[in-house]
Design a protein around this nucleic acid. Structure first.
Lengths: 154, 154
DNA sequence: GCCAACCATATTGTGCACAATCTAATGACG
DNA sequence: CGTCATTAGATTGTGCACAATATGGTTGGC
């Protein structure tokens, strides 16, 4: 009964390879980040904030991480509860919410700086391959986004 | 204030490239799969079932997708509600639940067979690159899993 | 000045992921 | 035959993702 349909086999699917690798990476980060009191998506938001240490709007962070307000609003509230960030309405444009690091949030960067290196060693690949992968994956992400936004014109 | 810490920059992080690409792929599959009445993880479970069209235990499917019962139990119940699969206790070992395709579930494979090809065109990469990526990503997944299971021996 | 688009964020609801815990069944062993 | 560690799933609780919608703020056209 198992007539083979090669393009449907799990092992051939790029989407599954991406899905499995992404989840494996998130899981691998888990315990490291738990020591900092962060989840993986929270860590990503902190990465964005650490890059400028200037206040950013929810939209700025979302654009960088490809996440919408439905995901970010509760996540950022948790960062606020943790004392790592503040959320304040922009007085100049009351539609916006400005997210800024607290002193505690800034200080966490020192401890976080060690995490990526420890994780890199677990990937089991060399630096050149990693760089190449980042390049290819970024291209795929952009290509998929362009074709998804573009819609399904016949 | 933004002293650069290169290993913390989003654009350098393989984990983020994976995370963003995986989500972009899932989003790109979304509308295609919605026409079949499936979500992306449900589609993955169907892929596993289509490969053998023999009854599989929840554990079998979980091993293949790297998912645990906490994720699969409700997902498989939804497939059952959709009339695509059945869930029955194994009479030989009452701890197990056997998941089998219904006739409707088997039939869905024909329509699903067209989806991966349409998606591949959106990745914007050639077949050789895709194969190489699948190989590298699978290796990373295995390496991360081995080092995660292995635990944190100093 | 008013209002109709538009914009940024928040809210709601569904469906994953995954850790932790629970329940029930199995099978090894005394 | 009992008991007890092991195993397979289910359940519970937290935290994403994301679609759809709601809310409030801004702005350009008139």
């Amino acid at each position: 009964m198992a007539d083979r349909v090669p393009q449907l086999e799990l092992g051939n699917q790029l989407c599954f390879a991406l899905y499995a690798a992404s989840r494996a990476a998130t899981r691998a980060y888990g315990p490291e980040l738990a020591e900092l009191g962060l989840t993986y998506p929270q860590y990503l938001a902190m990465l964005v904030l650490w890059e400028t240490s200037e206040p950013l709007t929810v939209g700025d962070i979302g654009a960088r991480l490809h996440l919408d307000s439905g995901t970010l609003t509760p996540l950022l509230k948790r960062l606020e509860d943790l004392g790592l960030a503040t959320r304040t309405r922009d007085r100049a444009d009351e539609r916006r919410v400005l997210v800024a690091l607290t002193e505690q949030g800034r200080e966490l960067r020192t401890r976080a700086a060690e995490v990526p290196l420890r994780l890199f060693q677990r990937y089991g690949i060399d630096l050149a391959t990693a760089r190449e992968l980042v390049r290819d994956l970024t291209r795929i992400t952009e290509s998929l986004q362009a074709s998804t936004r573009g819609g399904a014109e016949a």
